[in-house]
C-alpha cells in the first residue's frame, strides 16, 4: 500500500514538473534540419525535455508563413534560413538567431546546393544562360539569392538577361531535361535521385556563387520568449547541441530513427546515401557570413531598403560553452 502511494506521488510530481516546464512552440521545416527533428524523434537523447521545457514541433512549408504564425502569437521559435531572418529583422520582427543548424560549405565531404543544366544542352557556362531561364524554389529564398549571385558573377543581370522562375524541387529535373528551364536548383534528396537518372551536369554550387561558406539554416527565438524563459532556452539548446553531436557521431542510426518516426519520406536506402550539409557540433553561428550575405542583399540585389545590423539579431549566449 505504501509503495503504491509512493509510486503515485512520484508519477504526480513528475507530471507536475512536466506541466510547469514552459512549452516551446517550434516551427520547423521539411529539409536539412535533422538535429531538430531528432529532438522529437528521439526524446531519450534530450534529458531536459519534459523537465525544463516542453517541445511541440509544427511543420511549415515556407518561411513567410512561419513568421506570420510567430507574429500571430502561435510560435515561440523555429528554424529559418539566415537570410529570411535578415528580411524579418529588416521589417522589425523581434526575433533573434540563437544557434546554427547547417551551412553551405565547400569541400567534398559536404553537400552544397547545386545548379544543374542539361548534360548535352547548349549551356556550357553561366554566361550561356543569357536570354534563358533559371528555376529556383521560391522568390527571395536562399535558392533565389544563389541563382542571382551566380548570374551576377557571370556578368548577367538577373530578370533582364535571365529570367528567374520559382518551381518546385520535384519538377526541377524534368524541367531542365525537357528544356523548359535552362538551369534548375537541386538539393538533397532530389540531387542524388536526378544524378542517378543522368542527363544533368553541374553548373555551379551555392558556395561557388557567393564565394564563401555561409549559414544556411538557423534556430531563432522570439525576443519576448528569450527574456521570459531564459532557463528553458538554455536547456533546449543544451539538448540541441547534445543531439547535434549524437547526429554527427551516429548519422546512419539517426537517419534510420528519423525515417522510422516519419520525419523523412525519401526511401531509406536513398536517404542514407545522401550527402549532408555541414553542421557545427557546437551549433555556433558563422556571424561573418551572415554579415556578408546581408551586404550582398542590400548592395547587389536591392532586396533590403536599409542596412540590417546583423550583430544585433544574433544572441549565442544561450548556447552551452564549447
Amino acid at each position: 500500500m505504501k509503495i503504491s502511494l509512493a509510486f503515485l506521488a512520484l508519477v504526480f510530481s513528475a507530471c507536475a514538473i512536466a506541466q510547469d516546464a514552459p512549452l516551446i512552440r517550434f516551427g520547423r521545416g521539411f529539409a536539412a534540419e535533422e538535429q531538430v527533428w531528432l529532438m522529437s524523434a528521439r526524446p531519450d537523447l534530450t534529458p531536459n525535455q519534459g523537465k525544463r521545457y516542453q517541445l511541440k514541433q509544427i511543420l511549415f512549408q515556407a518561411n513567410p508563413e512561419r513568421f506570420q504564425a510567430y507574429l500571430a502569437g502561435e510560435l515561440d521559435a523555429g528554424t529559418a534560413p539566415g537570410l529570411a531572418v535578415i528580411f524579418a529583422r529588416a521589417q522589425g520582427v523581434d526575433m533573434k538567431i540563437v544557434a546554427s543548424v547547417c551551412l553551405e560549405a565547400a569541400g567534398r565531404e559536404w553537400f552544397s546546393t547545386t545548379y544543374m543544366v542539361k548534360d548535352d544542352g547548349p549551356i556550357r557556362t553561366v554566361k550561356d544562360l543569357k536570354g534563358g531561364t533559371i528555376a529556383v524554389v521560391g522568390i527571395k529564398t536562399a535558392t533565389d539569392l544563389w541563382a542571382r549571385a551566380g548570374l551576377l558573377n557571370a556578368g548577367l543581370a538577373p530578370d533582364k538577361d535571365t529570367k528567374v522562375f520559382p518551381l518546385g524541387f520535384p519538377a526541377m529535373g524534368d524541367a531542365v531535361r525537357t528544356g523548359k528551364v535552362g538551369a534548375g536548383t537541386f538539393v538533397e534528396p532530389f540531387y542524388s535521385a536526378e544524378m542517378a537518372k543522368g542527363g544533368l551536369r553541374k553548373l555551379f554550387t551555392a558556395v561557388e556563387a557567393v564565394g564563401y561558406d555561409h549559414e544556411l539554416l538557423d534556430i531563432w527565438f522570439g525576443e519576448k520568449f528569450l527574456k521570459a524563459q531564459p532557463g528553458a532556452v538554455r536547456a533546449f539548446l543544451a539538448d540541441y547541441v547534445a543531439v547535434t553531436k549524437y547526429y554527427l557521431a551516429n548519422t546512419a542510426q539517426a537517419k534510420r530513427d528519423l525515417h522510422k518516426a516519419g520525419f523523412v519520406r525519401t526511401p531509406l536506402e536513398v536517404y542514407l546515401k545522401n550527402a549532408d550539409w555541414k553542421r557545427d557540433a557546437n551549433a555556433r553561428v558563422d556571424v561573418a557570413s551572415l554579415e556578408k550575405l546581408s551586404t550582398f542583399m542590400l548592395d547587389k540585389l536591392q532586396w533590403l531598403e536599409k542596412p540590417v545590423n546583423v550583430d544585433s539579431m544574433i544572441d549565442q549566449s544561450f548556447l552551452p560553452r564549447p
Binding site: 513567410p64 513568421f67 528580411f87 521589417q91 521560391g138 522568390i139 527571395k140 520559382p166
Partner: peptide, 9 residues
C-alpha cells in the same frame, strides 16, 4: 504578391 509576401511587406 508573392514577392511582397517573401519580403514580409
Amino acid at each position: 504578391v508573392i514577392y511582397a509576401l517573401a519580403s514580409l511587406k
